[in-house]
């Protein structure tokens, strides 16, 4: 799997049946890169879409992604959530609070601050997003979503999140296992570690730093494993 560094305007490939992805564009049956990123020539054989892995940039919301957000504002029936992207996401009341039995929430009595207030951290799923409207979040889609009441919030570049997770969760599961803590990862570049142990947080911070710097190299999971083992021995 050979990867090449591409810059905006780099010619990737020429062909008639190819489509441009999110970070590339097409001009006269040639596909060009639009961002600083990595290009895998082998990955485009089966599919017609040509895309690159960006190395920099903000999170681009995608339907179905799990994200970690921070409430920035309450509206009448919804919250405005900072998801580390170029737009704020909206969390409607109906997507956040489960109705208890048949009892309906009376809207005129509603005070959203009783449920989530400004500064609260939530783990949510993006249920819809297109260019015409901001991303809509939900806390009901699956188990585990909701308000985060404890833990340690860490930041990583959103472009490096796939590296932090690894192939088939290999990296994240290894880190969880070796450190013995629960970690949740938002696709938008935020990570929450559930532990009070400051040493483990420091180790996690170092791992994040390492992944940010080395994300474009292969064999990273093994090196992180070695790093974790060396820390444990000391």
């Amino acid at each position: 799997m050979k990867r090449e560094i591409v810059l905006p305007g780099s010619l990737l490939i020429t062909g008639n049946n190819l489509k441009a992805g999110l970070y590339t564009f097409k001009e006269d049956s040639s596909i060009y890169a639009g961002l600083l990123g990595l290009f895998e020539r082998d990955s485009i054989k089966d599919k017609g879409v040509v895309n690159i892995i960006p190395l920099k940039g903000k999170y681009y919301p995608k339907e179905g992604d799990n994200v970690i957000g921070i409430i920035v504002k309450t509206h009448l029936f919804s919250w405005l959530v900072d998801i580390n992207s170029f737009v704020y996401a909206i969390l409607p009341f109906a997507n956040a609070v489960k109705a208890k039995g048949k009892k309906k929430v009376k809207k005129f009595e509603l005070n959203l601050a009783n449920y989530l207030s400004i500064g609260d951290v939530i783990y949510a799923k993006i249920v819809s997003f297109d260019r015409n409207s901001p991303p809509i979040l939900s806390l009901k889609e699956k188990k585990g979503l909701g308000k985060v009441t404890s833990g340690f919030l860490l930041n990583i570049s959103p472009a490096k999140i796939p590296r932090f997770i690894g192939k088939k969760l290999s990296m994240i599961n290894m880190i969880r296992e070796k450190l013995g803590i629960k970690i949740i990862v938002g696709r938008n570049g935020r990570i929450i570690a559930f532990t009070d142990d400051e040493n483990k947080i420091e180790i996690l911070k170092k791992i994040i730093e390492k992944i940010e710097l080395e994300s474009h190299t292969s064999g990273l999971t093994d090196r992180i494993k070695m790093f974790l083992e060396s820390v444990k021995n000391v």
Binding site: F25, G34, L35, G57
Partner: peptide, 11 residues
């Protein structure tokens, strides 16, 4: 702009 990860058609 390239450092910020913004989509440019070319440098």
């Amino acid at each position: 702009l390239v450092d910020a990860g913004i989509f440019l058609y070319d440098l």
